[in-house]
Design a protein around this nucleic acid. Sequence first.
DNA 1: TTGTATGCGTTATCAA
DNA 2: TTGATAACGCATACAA
Lengths: 337, 337
Amino acid sequence: MLRSASVKDVAATAGVSLGTVSNVLNRPERVSPSTRARVEQAMADLGFVRNESARQLRAGKSRLLAYVMLDATNPFFTDVASGVEDAAEAADLSLFMCNSSNSATREKAYLEHLVEQRVQGILITPVDPDSSTLDEVIRRGTPLVVVDRIRAGDTVCSVSVDDELGGRLAVEHLVDRGHRRVAYVGGPLSIGQVSDRWAGACRAWADAGLPEEDLVQIATGGLKVDEGRRAGERLLGLPERRRPTAAFCANDLTALGLLQHYITRSRRVPEDLAIVGYDDIVFAAAAAVPITSVRQPRQLLGERAAALLLDETANPQHVHERVVFTPELVARASTLG
Amino acid sequence: MLRSASVKDVAATAGVSLGTVSNVLNRPERVSPSTRARVEQAMADLGFVRNESARQLRAGKSRLLAYVMLDATNPFFTDVASGVEDAAEAADLSLFMCNSSNSATREKAYLEHLVEQRVQGILITPVDPDSSTLDEVIRRGTPLVVVDRIRAGDTVCSVSVDDELGGRLAVEHLVDRGHRRVAYVGGPLSIGQVSDRWAGACRAWADAGLPEEDLVQIATGGLKVDEGRRAGERLLGLPERRRPTAAFCANDLTALGLLQHYITRSRRVPEDLAIVGYDDIVFAAAAAVPITSVRQPRQLLGERAAALLLDETANPQHVHERVVFTPELVARASTLG
DNA sequence: TTGTATGCGTTATCAA
DNA sequence: TTGATAACGCATACAA
């Protein structure tokens, strides 16, 4: 099959004009049943498939949406993606999923491609929400919505979750459970999430009237399982009387690593260390000691972001919105004993 | 920005012909430095972006590759995807990632779209490798490679891992560790993987000269964490003298669920139950009791599949190949005590 | 009800 | 070195 059949080919074998074939495709009611049947037969015989590029060119716009994920190996983002997917499907749009893998270079290359593809719009969890790369995209005419991050200024819509509140919920819970020396595990602080959750943690700590120095920060270089393990090492390396009795981790991956380090060293969770994670990924609930975690409405995040994007493309009076969802603490054995 | 600038617009503002603009884009060496500068300036001023649809239409083919995943929430597939992504990037192709979420309907819709997009080729882990939907795609001219599944006949390339061998490795390991009553946890058997691993398990069991009835099957309805938990319930519901001392799970998700059920019931792993998983996802190694698992070369699977696809698109003498990789057992605490 | 003609943006061929 | 023109496949306005 060298070149696939075009409307012209179909027209020829059906013995009708090209316009009629097009009518069969787009306004079948205008075509008499008999010719329609003939055309449809010809299409079947030739294995005719619409050429989307040509349609797009003609239409002046595509029926494509794109979601640029920050890290496809983090279940949090695949859940967001699933929300986006549902929304795209409902709007009869195809979804282009890309994974920047936390690389600004890769992200930029993808954005370049997407703009060239004339996607209707881009949903993105950017490596750096304030990068000028995003402005460039907008300047060139592709609407963009930031997911799970906040961007300074009001040039785009964004959908996120209140991370400071999340941090507060986590630490309030630990304080309620009687903990008076707590570690915050996460990093780098340059990630908005990490610093906001830390800010919320500090706030809750101060509100409880506890001394500042008893909320310690275990700074990590990232938010993967391995960094959690290393945080465990550092905690166990502290002299016992100064060692925190609870840890609040900036995400579940680090929480899982930390849990593993403690358990494999025959420490008990929550007796030796209570743990709170963040994101409530399926593996948090599935851990040997189910992990208390701050849940974010992941699917909803994706769905809502897609809705904003669609509004921006369709509605001339669209105004940029900043949607902030509320997180929720899910208490499990890792803090309840 | 209503309509983005075209080559024609660029030509007009630069005061040159349309052909010259095209030359600047595609054969800059043919254009005198001064006019080239003028054209480039105009492109910058107008925010010109190539229209990929038009290029595609003109070229007669796209620069798109697609990977249709079976389940984006399973880390196994995101790792395969990352391999595909690397290969696509190296070949300067964009990658369209889709997620069928185990739904044949959704899969079909995606394939339809992809064929219309004239993607160069499709990598797919199909819901049903023998479905005629795949034939339809091929018949309409889009090359296709099956990933992590095998399809009867030789109409397509496929890349997979020897699941029977994997099953054998798992059970041999358990037999070596002295287990004489073992459960196989997984289902439904209609999934090739599940039945092949079971076949391998049986083979190893027979080779060890052990009585058939002591390798028991705990059939599950799927391969998620929850099914693992339920399998745990069923195991603990057995009278102790007939209860298996080890379980081989058809994937890590079920292994994690099973592990959790045992641990939260204060059973010990591996003392009360040794556990072997399959896939060696990051969460297997990260479990409180690190899980022994059969590792598959996930990234490589994706890369190799992409390579086969690219060969099929570029090489007229391409012949379909069936690549089978060898799995490897990674022993950890869940069987080593 | 059906046919004809035009243009979307790009690239390549050929002429100037 | 640059310019004019045709073609890719489709959808639509308009003519028959």
